[in-house]
Design a protein around this nucleic acid. Structure first.
Lengths: 191, 191, 191, 191
DNA sequence: TATGAATGAGCCTTCATTCAT
DNA sequence: GATGAATGAAGGCTCATTCAT
């Protein structure tokens, strides 16, 4: 595996384990088993890591959604699987995702993040498009707008349980149910 | 105004102006016009500021929503006003809110934030409750759950435009329209 | 003694002992017996030390010249004593003076150095003035210009023996004789 | 042109443009269009560059003086041309020369510099010798000593205007006049 | 000879926190 | 309660040098 990728992987691991603020470049290079200076051959600064991490996380998220949806063609099922995937990824990477989602890191790279998130928006947008074609939903909101709202809604719901409340399993399930119903209503899904 | 409050106000101002990472205790005491040590008479550490700031921000948000809703009794109008308020506050305090919303800061105080956010959830929850009583909406989602989803949805929509892609006015308006419709559908608002 | 002064003294000592390049802020604070951060309460950066050191060195130089001249009123003797003083100070502080003289350090502070050197120029300038009044010398070069040339000449002569050649005593003496005669001729000193 | 020479040229250029401290080996190899490691095939370390640079600079200086003196046989004119040349070279290479003249760089190579400067001293020394033979000057100072004093004097005069106070043209001219007269008097030039 | 990715010691600097006044 | 000079651990980053190719 190439070094740049290894750095990103190590950084994500460390962010999960000890939080972002507390992770130093020193930690990252130790984990990656490279020298301190080598880090700066691939990233101009600690902050320059962030877009690469965001990309990786979005890739993981999209992969997970795709994998869960698999060959399902029913929109209702697709949305349920998507919710499952988003909840699962949030559970595993809560803090890293929080960083990405809130866009807190350097204002410098904030603009890139819209682009970085694009693959995820596009995936959901195309699902909605197809559902519209098949008359599965009635919503007249443009698909790309709707996609962003859907992702935003589900992400925030997931964060609420994983980040704020360390909820128990039943609460998580009820939150999932609530957001599912909320979403179905919002899209005016025929049932 | 008492010193504790002045510290919080200065901190919020500075976070807005220069970001959170770049704001030091030194900056805060200078702005507040107190001595370095005085800060620690009121807050045990820099991180201990965060809950106080969150409280203040939530207070501002709730005040704004209440002020805009004023005496409106129509649920549709109430929701529209709420969306306006959330967008307005996000415009002004985008970075500070991002911090609070994503819960990024110290993991130490993360649990308190659910409590801190409570007044906002309660406000919306009671609005939904009333709407249900008046049969204005059909949604069967428990009001407290729905409230969290509503806030999460609208906040994330607002962040998308204010934090990620400094959109122009028309985009902001269309995002507002989209989230309004999405929300109305989600709550199965009768029109 | 106040802390700022102690820092400057330590720095000068260390520059003498191990050279300027090799002296770190860390060395300086250790010698001064203060904390690392304390250094930055008095000097904004390592380079900001330089003007203060230059001032101190010029003070030492002027003090030495004054001390040697004492109450001598004869211009010939005054110049001889001045040469002695410059050679003595160069012997003791060769590297530090080289730094100051060549103005190598940060270009940022270079302009200040003309001002810093002023006391030395003024001293010699006034000696020349008096000599002119007393018709001891004939030179028509303006005193302030002459002063700069005199200092430059003697400094460079001293550097040549102390910095480049680590000469033995006889060479030093012959260099001193040469520069004395050269100077006397240059000023058209009556003998 | 061979690689060693190209490295030296690049280094001099960079020292002029951005100062010595701020010039890295990395900059030098980039400018020379060679690999990082290639540098070390020609110079054992970064400091080992310095004598080579000094040699080059002295060569430039001697060339300039010779070129300006050309076939002039009159000592007065020769000295004036020499002063012009030294001022001109100082104007163009002020910082590099300051380094060489003050011997600041590594104490390691300081001794070599006397040798390096020899061609310049010899040139002036031979001019003075000839002048003595022709009874053009009366000074009894040994020519080799006088040469060093002359170079030191004129160099320091040039540094004063080019390094310390970026003087305007008139100041430069008056400094030149002053040093010329000072020098002529010092050598007891017959006029 | 030539390359250039990799190294890692060590630098300067920051800043949350303390404590004598 | 209030002060602010002092602290010092710890961080990001640089860059001269090496070595496998």
């Amino acid at each position: 595996m190439d070094k740049k990728e290894r750095i990103v992987k190590s950084a994500i691991e460390l962010f999960q384990e000890q939080g972002i603020e507390k992770t130093t470049v020193s930690d990252i290079v130790k984990r990656t088993q490279i020298a301190q200076g080598t880090f700066y051959l691939y990233f101009s600064s600690k902050l320059a890591l962030m877009p690469a991490i965001a990309e990786e996380m979005v890739k993981i998220l999209v992969d997970q959604i795709n994998k869960k949806i698999n060959n399902e063609t029913d929109f209702t099922t697709q949305m349920k699987k998507m919710i499952d995937a988003i909840f699962a990824v949030n559970e595993e990477y809560s803090e890293v995702l929080a960083l990405i989602y809130s866009g807190l890191a350097s204002t410098e790279h904030l603009k890139e993040w819209e682009t970085v998130y694009a693959p995820c928006y596009e995936l959901v947008s195309s699902l909605i498009d197809k559902a519209k074609e098949e008359k599965a939903i009635q919503s007249t909101i443009p698909s790309d707008c709707a996609a962003k709202l859907v992702i935003g809604l589900v992400e925030s719901a997931a964060e609420q349980v994983y980040l704020y409340n360390y909820s128990d399993v039943t609460e998580i399930e009820s939150q999932k149910d609530a957001v599912t119903q909320f979403l179905f209503d919002a899209l005016q899904l025929k049932r």
